[in-house]
Amino acid sequence: MPTPPVPELLRAHLNKLAEKDERLDGRGRFEGREVILETGVLSNAEGSARVQMGNTIVLAGVKFQIMTPYPDRPTSGGFMTSAEVRPVSGLHWEAGPPSPEAIELGRVVDRGIRESGCIDMEDLCILPGEKAWQVILDVFALSDDGNLFDAFATAAMAALRTATIPGEKFDVGEDRPLPVSKTPMMCSYHRVGGRYVYDTIRREEIGGAERIHITLGDDNHVHSLQKGLKGAFTAAEFDEIMEHARSRCAELRDLVNN
């Protein structure tokens, strides 16, 4: 479904609120919704998590398959992320093959995790050149009230951190925890009423302009960036949100690690 036509009234209202440095739900510019995280919620997944941020609810499930390693990397396993934004999660998501928006969601979440190197691909090797584990991360939206990116990324890391490699099920050794050495976290910012705000609700997204997603690893290393939608931003604006991302990612990391 295309993005609904922006009601000019909503945009005007968001602009008015921005003049007073306010938001639709009363939060401050960089104030996130409370993140409620629960792990072990899907009994048929090898690792799972549920994240709720206001009216946004998502799930992440980790499954394992045995793959043949790629010829150029015979001792490496694989990692794959797929984002399922099914029409159950909102009126604006329609049935059918994954939309460009859903594909972008999956790929941005995937990059942050992959590029951080938090999963040791060599450790997933079972028999060089013949057998290796493929880690499949499925993120699934139940209720979309904005900022699926951060909800997915948080649920994904929590699911990976609690995942078990099912050696016994596949008859290749014992079950063991999936080693995850780092905890990359994502923070997303959206231009609403002319300035960037953190953790938007859906109505802010409808009336907003461009968005920026930042994934930071341990020690604030940058692992993925994505600018989405139409709009332009300045270096000073980017500096401001990057500074906020550093402190917020650390908070989210503590939540996921504990």
Partner: peptide
Amino acid sequence: APFSTTDRIRPG
């Protein structure tokens, strides 16, 4: 959902 069963289901 892809994670609903013992063996992962391909989406679609």
